[in-house]
Amino acid sequence: MSSELPTQTPTSLVKAAVLGAAGYSGAELCALLTRNPHFELCFAYASAGRKAEPFSSLYPRFQQQVDVLVEPWTDDEIARIKGKVDVAFLALPHEASEEVAPKLMAAGIVVVDLSGAFRLKQADLYPKFYGYEHQHPALLNEAVYSLMEWLDKPLPQLISVPGCYPTACTLALLPLLKAGLVADNCIPVINATSGVSGAGRKAALNTSFCEVGLNAYGFFKHRHRPEIEQNLGRKVVFTPHLGNFKRGILATSVVTLKAGVTAEQVKAAFHHAYANKPLVRLTATSPNVADVDGTPFCDIFWQQDGEQLVVVSAIDNLLKGAAAQAMQAANVKFGKAETAGLFAFAKAGVL
C-alpha cells in the first residue's frame, strides 16, 4: 500500500469522502463531517445504479445544512478524488468495503471502514459468519480495530470501526475482565435489543416498522458474536433481538464474579476504565435507549448480588455504534480533539 499519506497542518481542513452516503450510517457521517470544524465533506457516493441527487433530497431535514451531491460510485472515482481527499469513510456492505479499501489505500487515502470486512483477525471465520471467503487476509492484521475507549496503539491507514452490538457489549464487560474480577469459567450471557434502523434503510417486510414487535434472532450464529468474543478473550452466549423502535441498542450482560469480589472493586473497575473517557457515562439508574438516541454516548449501569453481576449498556446504534465512533477515530487519526463535532450533533440525527 502507499506510504505517501496526506499530511495536515494545524489549521488545514481534513478532506473527506463518504461511500454509502444514502444509507443511515453514511448519512449520519455526512452530517457529522459537516458539523465538525476540522473536516470538510468533499464527496459523497451511493451505489453505482443510483442517479446523482442532493443529499437533502434523500434526507429533507438537512436542507440548507448538508450541501453535498450524492453521486454514483464507480472505481473510476478513485482517480478523481486522489490528492483531493485525505480520508474515505466506507459505510458499505462488507464485501464491497473489502474490495474498495485496498484501492483507496493505494491512492494514499486513509480508510475508515464501518463494515465488518476487517474486524475479525481470523480469515476462516468469514465464511461461517459473513457468508464469503475473505480475499485480503493480510489486511486483517494491518487494520486496527477502533474501539476508541480501549485503543492501545496508533491508528494506521486502515481503521476498522467496531460493530454496534459489540460496542455496547464490550464497553460493558471489558473493565471487569481487565480487572480480573470475572470468574475464570464464566461464559457471559448477553441479551441485546436493537431498533429497526440496525437493519439498514432498504425496505424489507421483516423490518417494516408495522411488522416488528419484539423477537430474538441469530441464535449462536450472529456475525457479531465472534467479534465480541475476540474483544473479550472468551466465549459468550449472545442473543440479539429486534425491537419496535427506530434507533438504539440496549444490552443486558450477566457474568459470575470471582468469590469475594466486592461492590467497591466493581465500581473501581468501571471508574478506572472510564474516568477520562468523555463518551462513556456511568449512570445511577438503568439506561434507556431514549436517553442515548441522537447522542454519541454509551451509558453503563450495573447491579451486583453476591457473585452475580448484571451490566446494562445503551448506545445509539447509528452514532456510538457506527458514525460517531468512526468520527471519533478520524479525529484522533488526524490529531484533532477526540470529540470534535460530536457534542454539537446530539439530537440532530437522520431519523
Rank of each mutant, 00 (worst) to 15 (best):
T34G: 01
T34K: 07
R35F: 09
R35Y: 08
R35P: 00
N36Q: 11
H38S: 13
H38Q: 12
F39P: 06
F39N: 04
F39H: 13
E40K: 12
E40G: 08
L41R: 00
C42D: 09
F43I: 01
A44H: 08
A44M: 10
A44N: 02
Y45Q: 09
Y45T: 11
A46R: 11
A46M: 10
A46E: 10
A46I: 01
S47G: 12
S47H: 15
A48L: 04
A48C: 05
A48Q: 14
A48K: 15
A48M: 06
G49E: 06
G49D: 09
G49N: 12
R50L: 10
R50A: 06
R50S: 08
K51V: 04
E53Q: 15
E53Y: 00
S56G: 00
S57G: 00
S57N: 11
S57M: 05
L58F: 03
L58S: 04
L58V: 03
L58H: 07
L58K: 03
Y59K: 02
Y59E: 02
Y59D: 02
P60A: 01
P60F: 03
R61N: 04
F62K: 03
Q63R: 10
Q64V: 01
Q64S: 13
Q65M: 07
Q65R: 13
V66W: 09
V66E: 10
V66Q: 11
V66T: 11
D67R: 12
D67C: 10
V68R: 09
L69C: 13
L69Y: 07
V70T: 11
V70F: 09
V70A: 09
V70K: 10
E71Y: 05
E71I: 08
P72N: 09
W73P: 07
T74N: 12
T74D: 14
D75K: 12
D75E: 15
D76K: 13
D76R: 14
D76W: 02
D76M: 06
E77H: 14
E77A: 14
I78T: 08
A79W: 02
R80G: 03
R80E: 09
R80A: 14
R80K: 15
R80T: 15
R80H: 14
R80Q: 14
I81Q: 07
K82F: 00
K82T: 15
K82R: 15
K82V: 01
G83E: 11
K84L: 15
V85E: 04
V87F: 01
L90W: 10
L90C: 03
A91K: 05
L92V: 13
L92M: 14
P93M: 06
P93C: 05
P93I: 06
P93K: 06
H94C: 13
H94V: 15
A96K: 02
A96G: 00
A96R: 02
A96H: 01
A96S: 13
S97V: 02
E98I: 07
E98W: 04
E99V: 04
E99Q: 11
V100W: 08
V100S: 04
V100I: 15
A101W: 01
P102R: 00
K103N: 05
K103W: 07
K103H: 05
K103I: 04
M105E: 14
M105C: 06
